[in-house]
């Protein structure tokens, strides 16, 4: 067992667990976006930042990827942490404002507006869908492609994947697009793409083969028409 102190409270957790798990055990809330139980920790969204160490050596780390250490002192909601977290949320809002998940998180952290150039991305590159596909669905049909500002998620050559079994797991976990795919319940859709649709997209001819990463995303395809 490893002994550490979180927000002044001593706690002993098993070796190899992360700060996030330890904080959860104590009941301290740490917001997450790219973390999902059952999938490996990735540390892409940086929402789960916490402050470790003391004095001038204190630093911010992502709690989902940082393993507990003996005697570690963690603060999950210091002023520095809150400031960093708000900045992360602003950046997420700047790139993907239509995501209900991000909107809810921003609202919960009292982020009302963001100061960056507004974009409307379909993807925040959190890698949830890739890990879902590989680790839970054992398919590995999608992955990261290119790099830098051209980085994207999808199948090789943008072609329908042979590995994909159309399980829909990728869309299920996606924080950016899951709500675009609630075409069966238009009142829940927030992008408007599906709500504007009549008759339902189920009547689209090639619907059987359609899914976000194989062909153009169902929702996007609909929006285009």
């Amino acid at each position: 067992m490893i002994n550490l102190v979180i927000n002044g409270l001593p706690v002993a957790v098993e070796e190899g667990s992360t700060i996030l798990e330890a904080a959860k055990y104590l009941g301290f809330p740490i917001p997450t976006l790219c973390h999902l139980e059952g999938l490996s920790n990735y540390g892409a969204c940086r929402l789960c930042v916490v402050e470790i160490g003391e004095g001038p050596k204190a630093r911010l780390v992502s709690s989902c990827t940082y393993q507990v250490e003996e005697g570690l002192k963690v603060r999950t909601a210091s002023a520095r942490v809150v400031k960093a977290r708000k900045m992360v949320l602003e950046l997420l809002l700047a790139s993907c404002p239509q995501s209900k998940v991000i909107q809810d998180l921003a609202s919960a952290h009292d982020v009302r507006q963001q100061r960056f150039r507004q974009e409307h991305e379909d993807c925040i590159l959190c890698g949830l869908c890739i890990r879902m596909c590989e680790e839970q669905m054992m398919a590995k049909a999608i992955g990261f492609r290119n790099r830098g500002e051209n980085r994207s998620i999808g199948t090789p050559f943008d072609m329908k994947s042979e590995e994909c079994r159309l399980c829909g797991g990728c869309m299920y976990v996606c924080p950016a697009c899951q709500l675009r795919c609630t075409y069966m319940e238009p009142e829940k859709a927030i992008c408007g793409g599906c709500a504007n649709l009549s008759p339902p997209c189920l009547e689209k001819s090639s619907f059987e083969d359609m899914m976000c990463y194989m062909d153009p995303c169902v929702a996007c395809e609909i929006r285009k028409d």
Partner: peptide
């Protein structure tokens, strides 16, 4: 390996 691994390296 999955094709996406190789493709990822090739495009990176």
């Amino acid at each position: 390996r999955s094709l996406v691994d190789i493709y990822g390296v090739a495009t990176f």
